[in-house]
């Protein structure tokens, strides 16, 4: 109910509660990288580069699969615990889609450079990393889509909060869902409890306290918003693919 009322009202930047910021995705911007992508959600900009599969040595070498490595670079360049945690979260999220058993004994590095942080940074980074992996031609089981959702002090759920909103809000959540009408591998788990596969939560990171009901509300809004981002990602990737085909 509250959400319906809220959606009529404008936010600080004039958006409604369910409105995402204008999103841009461009690929193959870096010459040396095997794959790269730039993901922009208004003022939040992330550059992602992928190197690999490349030889690795020592502890990182796994005879059964390729090892993923995520490097998170902030604007200031000083790495703290928060950046390490982001690296762990993103690596484990991407492990869900990378078919690592196709390239045993190798390593894949994903470098994420924050160009500008205006909220929803983790979600943007995951979307950028996914696009860069596609650009690098790394075998994937499918695509993923990340979305950020915030809970205001009045308990209203809004999607894609900016930095200022994140600071003023009671809580915000980053959710990652599978982006799939199709998938490259057979034998995926069937919908559980009547829920379609793209409603499954791959990753969830929360900041701030909220009630269980508010969290469920976040899930619902996040899923709705993820459909839009998923559509955008697919169109963007297909568009690039077509231009490649025309060129060759």
């Amino acid at each position: 109910m509250i959400n319906l009322e809220m959606s009529e009202q404008a936010r600080v930047d004039g958006r409604t509660a369910n409105q995402l910021r204008p999103t841009l995705c461009s690929r193959s911007l870096l010459e040396r990288a095997h794959g790269s992508a730039r993901w922009q959600q208004d003022n939040t900009i992330i550059m992602a580069a992928v190197y690999g599969p490349k030889p690795v040595s020592g502890k990182k070498e796994d005879p059964e699969r390729a090892t993923l490595e995520v490097l998170w670079k902030t604007k200031s360049g000083i790495a703290g615990n928060a950046d390490k945690e982001a690296e762990v979260t993103i690596r484990r999220t991407l492990e869900y889609i990378v078919l690592s058993s196709m390239h045993p004994n190798t390593g894949i590095s994903i470098i994420l450079q924050v160009v500008n942080d205006d909220g929803a940074i983790l979600a943007c980074a995951i979307n950028a990393a996914c696009a860069a992996l596609v650009d690098a031609g790394i075998p994937l089981t499918g695509l993923i889509v990340a979305v950020s959702v915030g809970v205001t002090t009045h308990g209203v759920v809004v999607v894609d909060p900016t930095k200022v909103e994140e600071k003023n809000f009671r809580a915000h959540v980053c959710l990652v869902f599978p982006n799939r009408p199709k998938c490259t591998v057979a034998g995926l788990p069937a919908p559980v409890g009547g829920e379609p596969a793209e409603h499954g939560i791959i990753t969830c990171v929360t900041r701030g306290a909220m009630s269980v009901d508010e969290y469920m509300n976040c899930l619902e809004r996040g899923r709705a918003a993820s459909v839009k981002i998923a559509k955008f990602t697919r169109t963007s990737l297909e568009h690039c693919q077509r231009s490649y085909e025309i060129m060759s």
Binding site: V88, T89, E95, H199
Partner: peptide
């Protein structure tokens, strides 16, 4: 009823609402 954190960093299984 108060959720302080719900942290799921990737993994091979997706979590459904249930």
């Amino acid at each position: 009823d108060k959720l302080i954190s719900l942290y799921k960093p990737g993994g091979q299984v997706v979590a459904t609402t249930s």
